[in-house]
């Protein structure tokens, strides 16, 4: 009797899992074995291992790596300094607030800022560097992506720093460690879980960004995400798209396993 009522909760939830978690993954796998005519084939996989696709995969990983590293380098000090401020919850809210503004709008804003006559070039002009082509370069792609992802990196690191027992920092100082040594040997190792969570929250989406590449990088940067979108919505070659998706899922699983060994 007791058991039955509790299982009632399981039914809709398990139904959701089967329908929207398990089935889609299996379908992706299934479709990856069909070519554009609907014939069963493993040609898609052969095609994936040709230089064009491998190069694209590699560059996609490289960009995602760059975006993650820059986000981390900027976000860690930010999170650290935030924990030192007086009204830290309020400041944190202000860091998160931009994530509530539609992503597309922020990307769109950079169309203006990075434009030939935009703010960025005006600043460069004032500094005497002169006008540069910023839009439709890899730099603009990485910059905008980092901009988008910083709050997602700050949040878990901030939480990890907040959980850190402050007497551990005192203890390190007490034992003669300088501020830098304390950071390197105590603070950073103990907030590594937050860093991992942040990297996970940045790296995986960075692999699959396609709207930013389309709008800001002007097709100069092709990521796995762009390729999937292209195959599904433009060329209608679902099989090839699904194949790339399979590899993206594998990459995702690897990243989760690497960053996910949290207690």
């Amino acid at each position: 009797m007791k058991h039955n009522t509790r299982n009632v909760y399981l039914i809709p939830y398990v139904l959701w899992i089967v329908l929207f978690v398990v089935a889609p993954i299996l379908l992706i796998l299934y479709y990856s074995f069909f070519d554009i005519e609907g014939q069963w084939t493993i040609a898609n996989y052969k095609k994936f291992f040709t230089p064009i696709y491998l190069k694209m995969t590699f560059s996609s990983f490289w960009y995602a790596f760059l975006i993650t590293v820059f986000s981390l380098l900027i976000a860690y000090p930010t999170a650290y300094l935030l924990t030192k401020t007086k009204h830290k919850q309020l400041w944190l809210l202000l860091i998160i607030l931009p994530t509530w503004v539609n992503l597309l709008l922020k990307v769109y804003a950079f169309l203006g800022i990075f434009g030939t006559y935009g703010l960025a070039n005006a600043v460069l002009e004032a500094l005497g560097v002169g006008t540069k082509q910023i839009l439709f370069t890899d730099f603009s792609f990485v910059f905008v992506s980092v901009y988008i992802f910083i709050p997602f990196m700050v949040l878990p690191i901030f939480n990890a720093l907040e959980e850190l027992n402050p007497s551990l920092v005192d203890a390190a100082r007490d034992l003669g460690a300088s501020a830098w040594t304390t950071f390197r040997r105590v603070v950073f190792p103990l907030t590594i879980d937050g860093v991992k969570a942040g990297c996970q929250a940045v790296f995986i989406p960075a692999l699959s960004l396609f709207m930013i590449t389309r709008l800001i990088a002007g097709n100069r940067v092709i990521t796995l995400g762009t390729a999937i979108e292209e195959h599904f919505l433009v060329t209608q070659d679902w099989g090839m798209g699904a194949t790339i998706a399979v590899f993206l899922i594998i990459a995702m699983a690897i990243v989760v396993i690497i960053t996910g060994n949290r207690k």
Binding site: N165, S167, L168, D170, A171, R173, D174, G176, A177, L190
Partner: peptide, 20 residues
């Protein structure tokens, strides 16, 4: 004089042992 330059050591209430 900062804590790391003092000839003094502390045993903390919660021990503050480094868990890692």
């Amino acid at each position: 004089v900062p804590a790391n330059k003092r000839q003094v050591n502390t045993v903390f209430q919660d021990y503050a042992l480094f868990p890692h």
